[in-house]
Every structure is written in C-alpha cells, then in structure tokens.
Design a protein around this nucleic acid. Sequence first.
DNA 1: TATAACTTATCGTATATCGATAAAACATCA
DNA 2: TGATGTTTTATCGATATACGATAAGTTATA
Lengths: 272, 272
Amino acid sequence: MTTLDESKAPKGKRSGNAGEKSDDPLMVMSVEKAFRVLSAFGRQHPTLNLSQVASVTGMDISSAQRFTHTLTKLGYLHKDSETKRFELTAKTLDLGHHFFRSSRLVDRAMPYLMHLSKETEETVNLTTLEETEIIFVSRFLSRHVLNTDVIIGTRMPAYCTAPGIAMLSRLPEDQAMAIIDKSDRKQHTPSTTWQRDALLAKIRETRAQGYATAFEEFYLSDASIAAPILDHRGRPEGAVNIAVSCSRYSREEVIARFSSLIVATAHAISRV
Amino acid sequence: MTTLDESKAPKGKRSGNAGEKSDDPLMVMSVEKAFRVLSAFGRQHPTLNLSQVASVTGMDISSAQRFTHTLTKLGYLHKDSETKRFELTAKTLDLGHHFFRSSRLVDRAMPYLMHLSKETEETVNLTTLEETEIIFVSRFLSRHVLNTDVIIGTRMPAYCTAPGIAMLSRLPEDQAMAIIDKSDRKQHTPSTTWQRDALLAKIRETRAQGYATAFEEFYLSDASIAAPILDHRGRPEGAVNIAVSCSRYSREEVIARFSSLIVATAHAISRV
DNA sequence: TATAACTTATCGTATATCGATAAAACATCA
DNA sequence: TGATGTTTTATCGATATACGATAAGTTATA
C-alpha cells in the first residue's frame, strides 16, 4: 500500500479536470496531462509505478496508462521491465538544451559570465524572472563551493534573492509590487526581508544604486550581489550575480569588491 | 518570404502523419506534436513565427496555432506581442531539473565527481548512453577550459568518445556492435576511430583495461579518459570522464595520471 | 492456495481535436 | 493612397481520437 500525497483525487467528472477553465477551444489538454505526468517525478518520487502515476497526477488508470506509454515511446520515460516502475530519462534534458542553445540572452551573457568567474574565482550565475520566482539558467561554480543543491533549472522566490530584487527594481514599480504581493512570503532565515514596505524600500534602493544584495536571506551563510540585464527597451530580461559564503566576506567586502564589477558585467550584457 | 528547411512537408493526408506506424491505440499523438513544436526551436531557429512553426514541424497552420497556444499557456513558449514571434522560455529547464533531482545515478555520482574535479582541477563529466549517443548529464568545468559548446544535455556519438566506448565495453558484445552498426560513423578528425573492426578492438581493449581513452576523436585538441559506472546487475548505466586539452598532456601522461583515478571513481559510484 | 493489487489489452462511445475557412491585422508596393 | 499578398486570429461542423470502463493476465501478499 503506497502512501502518496494524491493532492485531491478529483473523482473525475466528464469535463476536463485539468485545472479550472476547460473552455479554451485552442487548448490541447493532452499536452498539459503529459507534462503533469512528467512532473510527477522528482526528489519525492524518483520512480513511480502505473497506479502511483495515476494517483499522483489525479488521472484514472487508463489515462495514466496511455500517457506513460506515450512518454515512454517518445523516450522521456523509462520503464524497468522487471519492477514495472517508471523513471525520467536523460532525454528530458533535451528541451532545456534547446532553450540554452536558442537563447540570445544566454548567448550574449556566456563569455562575460565566464570572464567574471575566472576574474573573481567565485560562483557566478545567470538567472531569469518567471512570475514570482527566479530560475537559474547558467551557473559557474567556484571551487570553494560544495553546494550541489542549486543547479541549472532551480527556482527560488524572487523577493529574497539578489537577482530577484535586481530584476524587480527595473520593472515599473506597480508591476514589481504586484509580484511581491503575489509571492508567498515568509521568513526563511532571521535576516529575510519579507515585509512589503521593507521590500519596496529595498527595491528603490537597488534601483538607485544599480545592484542588489542579499545576505543570508534564503540560505544561511549565503551572500549574493546582483545586477539586472536589460533588453533593448530597458526591461529586465535577466540578472547576473556573484554568490559567496558569508564566512569569507563581510557585507562591506562583498560590496567593495564586487559591486562595480557586477554592474559593469550586467551592463555589458544588456542591449539598452 | 522565409527560407526554412521544412524537411519535407508531408502534405498531410488524414491519418496521423507523425512518424510511421500510427496504429498504436495507446499513443497520444498530441503529445508527440507538442514536443515536435518545442524542438523546432534551437540554434538554427531561436525564434519562429506561427507559419514558420507550421512549416518547420510539417503541421498545418491550425495545428501550429493550437499547439503554440497550448505551450504558451503552459509557459514553455513565450510570444513577443509585437513581433508575434515565439521562443522557448526558461521553464523548459524544469523537466531536466526534475530528472536531475530524481536520478539515483546523479545522486550517487555527485560527491565523487566533485571530489574528482577538485582533486584533478580538470573538467569532469557524467554521461549516460541513449541509443547511439551519449548525453552529458553533469559537468564540472575546469578553470582552463573556455569551451561553452558542450553543456548539460549535449549529445555526442558514442563511438568516438571515451565515455561512449567505456559504456559499450560493458554491454554484451553483440549489443555493443549493434549500436556501432546503427551509428552514422564518420571521420570527424584525422584520428577518429570509425571502422567497425577498429572499434571492436577498441571496445575489447577497453573492457580488458577498465577504462577508455579518446584523443582528438571528435574535437581537435580534446583528450578524454573514461570509465563505466555499473548498476547492480553489472550493466553500464553511465560513465565518468576527465577531459583535458592535448596541448597540456601527452597520451601517456593522461593515462599515467588519471586512469586509476577514473577507474576508482567509477567503481565507487557503481553498485555491482 | 486463495486473495488482493497491479498491469496489460480491448472496445464502444462521446468529446476533444482536427483542419478548412473566414475575418482581421499587418506588411508591401505600385 | 489603395490594392495585393501574407500572417494572425477566430469560428465551426465532422469525425477521428482519446476516453474510461472493464476484462483478462500477471505478480505480489497472506
């Protein structure tokens, strides 16, 4: 008997049980379902058998059967023929790879990130903003770091990260605050800035000085300094940041050593 | 007028024009089409408008419309509202991220790769085998390297890479040679091993000595040494390799310095 | 050995997807 | 400026496609 957090088995009525409004004639629901199946796998559920797929995704057994079959045929799932359990394959990396190869932002940023990484010998990241979160798009690890938790594709809340605040600071203020308001804010560490007015102040300060900082706001002992990358219309399309351990730099040292470097790099990547 | 390599517009008859046999009652064709749309984007086509999507994927305009709409709604595509052009979003990194988080192989390998990377100060990779290709799953860059061409998700032909040969060497010989035969072999560089019998010899030698090497077989000035990671049944489920520049090491030095290290690491990650 | 849980295969039905078409928006050029 | 062609957006009826119930087959459990 498997104990799965089958969020809420919708006991499927006839209509598409996907999310809410099924009345979008251009929406191909099968695609959403396929992705639902794929994202059922993760740290919590590295492998799933058929009925687990059904219960985790809230689909009936037949649908689970059809979609696992389809995704296996397409090569995104692998089925162990003796345990009958499914798992994701390395082919799932293809999509992200396509993105990486096609992104003009990544293309422009890459050499600068590389240079920054060698120059500073610290961890350097490229992130983008999606909704209320930042996504790590590219990452150059410093030799000092042994944090294997943050990798390409990792998401973090924008409000408590330097890149997040850096990007928000270049959005129209109402939009930035709309994102803040949408965020599920909580105090991850004792030094997390999470209150609305404090965040507004931080955003304004960041806009004025051109870079954002975050000291132990999400992870303890993590310090970060970031600057926004702007597109040709002046809108933020990403951020560069340098992340170091608090044990090795004081707040002042981080700013003194990296602020102008990070601002210059972000500016060079921008195409305002 | 856009000149796109619309491979062959199948001039769609009624039946599912996906690939070949459409007579698989469990196959959900819409899923395949969705992925077809997503993989239309890449280095060649960083952005596409609606009709280009249609011609590149070989779908009619209505389907292109439906699938771009769907994928945009799901967040994998972004549509620039003034140019009406689509591009992939960073959300495409999610799937690969799920894979990364769920893979037991990655989980086991990570600390060893890290250690190897610090120990040697060279580029270290984890790869898996898919059909005739290896896929880069994890990668620790050395400071020396400025090759931004190989990234996570990159594929290379197995037959002319050290990790590829390392994995093939632990497959039953007929299976290994079946893969060799399926491969589209060509002489990428003057030193590419590409002939069937030469490859067979190489595979046998690799099996005997426990590690594989490749010197400028795919990229010029690239040297690589790899060992296979075995699962509990002794089947290869991946490979670790160290890649260096030929200008910095001779063939003998590579072997002398790294062979036992790479074999030991691969063995430690294995679970025979 | 009996029972339960799960996987695989089959099939009639209804609906979600298809693809043609038309309207609207946009671009190009005489 | 208006005419012409291209691309995008919206609509809709037909039916192939995906649905989901169920049965048969397989593996695990007691």
